[in-house]
Computed example of a mutant assay.
Amino acid sequence: MAKHKIYTMSVASVYPHYVAKAEKKGRTKAEVDEIIGWLTGYNQEELEGQLEKQTDFETFFAEAPQMNPSRTLIKGVICGVRVEDIEEPTMREIRYLDKLIDELARGKAMEKILRK
């Protein structure tokens, strides 16, 4: 079975859309970066390095310093699918990130987004 197209897309190609979605709703790039760091363990410098290298999504998550164990608390529907029901690990991580960015754009408080 062929890999889903999103796996081979660079994070850098989607990242501006995450930021634009957040900023359109009055949120900031810094909040997007904080969410990505919370989920993956990348610090700001490492995140910028991954974006510069045009790292694809599969590699981005595979090389993540420390996936947050609290990410399993992320529940809900994204792209018509319940994130907690996604079997494929990499796709689930991608959808976790999508869900967090969605919550940010919907005005949810950062403490709630970061499952504190």
Rank of each mutant, 00 (worst) to 15 (best):
M1K: 15
K3A: 08
H4K: 12
H4Y: 09
H4A: 02
H4S: 02
I6A: 15
I6T: 04
I6D: 07
Y7T: 07
Y7Q: 11
T8D: 14
M9E: 11
M9Y: 07
S10K: 09
S10M: 06
S10I: 08
A12C: 09
Y15F: 11
P16H: 04
H17W: 08
H17K: 13
Y18L: 05
V19E: 02
A20W: 12
A20P: 04
K21W: 04
K21V: 11
A22T: 14
E23K: 07
E23P: 05
E23Y: 02
K24S: 10
K25F: 01
G26M: 14
G26L: 13
R27M: 03
R27V: 12
T28W: 15
T28E: 14
K29N: 03
A30P: 08
A30I: 12
V32P: 04
I35A: 04
I35C: 09
L39N: 11
L39M: 07
T40M: 01
G41W: 08
G41N: 04
Y42G: 05
Q44I: 02
E45Y: 04
E45Q: 10
E46Y: 00
L51S: 15
L51F: 12
E52K: 01
E52S: 15
T55F: 07
T55C: 10
F57N: 01
E58C: 07
T59C: 01
F60I: 06
F61H: 06
F61Y: 12
F61K: 07
A62V: 00
E63P: 08
E63I: 01
P69G: 00
P69W: 10
P69K: 13
S70D: 14
R71H: 02
L73W: 09
L73R: 12
I74W: 09
I74L: 15
K75N: 08
G76C: 06
V77W: 13
C79A: 11
C79M: 15
C79V: 06
C79D: 14
C79N: 08
C79H: 10
V81N: 07
V83K: 13
V83N: 08
E84S: 01
D85R: 03
E87V: 15
E88T: 00
T90Q: 14
T90W: 05
T90Y: 03
M91Q: 06
R92F: 05
E93K: 08
E93R: 12
I94E: 02
I94V: 11
Y96N: 04
Y96S: 01
L97N: 03
D98C: 03
K99A: 13
L100R: 12
L100E: 13
I101E: 10
I101F: 13
L104A: 03
L104I: 15
A105D: 13
R106E: 10
G107M: 04
G107W: 00
M110I: 15
K112Q: 04
I113Q: 13
I113H: 08
L114M: 07
L114H: 09
R115P: 00
R115E: 03
R115Q: 10
